[in-house]
Amino acid sequence: MITWSRVDELADEIGADDFAEVVALFLEEVEGELDRLYDLTDANALERTLHFLKGSALNLGFSEFAALCQLGERQAAQGNSSDIRADRVVDCYNRSKSEFMAGLEQRRPT
């Protein structure tokens, strides 16, 4: 679900304090977009939102969530928006977030 090598790379690149800030911003922005996902009926808006979510997810190593967003992005681009299940996207994010937060806790130096 999580590509930990990407997480470690980002944390090393920006440092612990900035990493914590990036994580907080990521969670806030993604959760805001996920809240809107259920209300989007326009295929273009849905495609843009899923593209944003995919890119954000890839930056922080949420690989399974990014893959599901990419699938939805393609479906919206092909005019198959009705095939996109917002509940599956949100569920995948929630599971990914749980795994991510637990993994971060385990990675903290003691």
Results as ranks from 00 to 15, higher is better:
M1V: 05
M1S: 08
M1P: 05
I2N: 01
I2F: 00
T3E: 09
T3L: 08
W4I: 09
W4M: 06
S5Q: 12
S5M: 05
S5L: 12
S5E: 09
R6C: 04
R6N: 04
V7C: 11
V7P: 04
V7N: 05
V7A: 01
V7R: 06
D8K: 14
D8A: 13
D8H: 11
D8I: 14
D8F: 10
D8N: 13
D8W: 13
D8M: 10
D8S: 12
E9W: 13
E9A: 15
E9G: 11
L10T: 14
L10W: 14
L10V: 15
L10E: 13
A11V: 11
A11T: 11
A11C: 03
D12L: 14
D12A: 12
D12K: 13
D12R: 14
E13Q: 15
E13N: 15
I14Q: 09
I14F: 05
I14P: 02
I14V: 14
G15Q: 14
G15C: 09
G15I: 10
A16D: 15
D17P: 03
D17R: 09
D17Y: 08
D17V: 14
D18K: 07
D18P: 00
D18I: 08
D18G: 07
F19V: 03
F19G: 04
F19H: 06
A20T: 12
E21Y: 08
E21T: 13
E21S: 13
E21G: 07
V22S: 02
V23G: 02
V23C: 07
V23L: 07
V23T: 11
A24M: 05
A24D: 06
A24S: 08
A24T: 07
A24G: 07
L25S: 04
L25A: 06
F26W: 06
F26G: 01
L27N: 13
L27F: 07
L27C: 12
L27K: 04
E28Y: 00
E28N: 03
E28I: 03
E29C: 01
E29V: 02
V30A: 13
E31R: 00
E31H: 02
E31W: 01
E31Q: 01
E31S: 02
E31C: 00
G32E: 13
G32S: 12
G32N: 09
G32Q: 01
E33K: 05
E33T: 00
E33G: 01
L34P: 14
D35L: 09
D35A: 14
D35Y: 08
R36F: 00
R36K: 11
R36L: 02
R36H: 00
R36V: 02
R36T: 08
R36I: 03
L37P: 05
L37R: 08
L37G: 08
Y38W: 15
Y38H: 15
Y38Q: 15
Y38R: 15
Y38V: 15
Y38D: 15
Y38F: 15
D39M: 09
D39F: 05
D39A: 15
D39N: 12
D39P: 04
L40R: 02
L40M: 04
L40D: 01
L40I: 12
L40C: 02
T41M: 11
T41P: 00
T41L: 08
T41W: 01
D42C: 12
D42K: 11
D42P: 03
D42S: 09
D42G: 05
D42N: 07
A43L: 04
A43Q: 13
A43P: 10
A43S: 09
N44L: 06
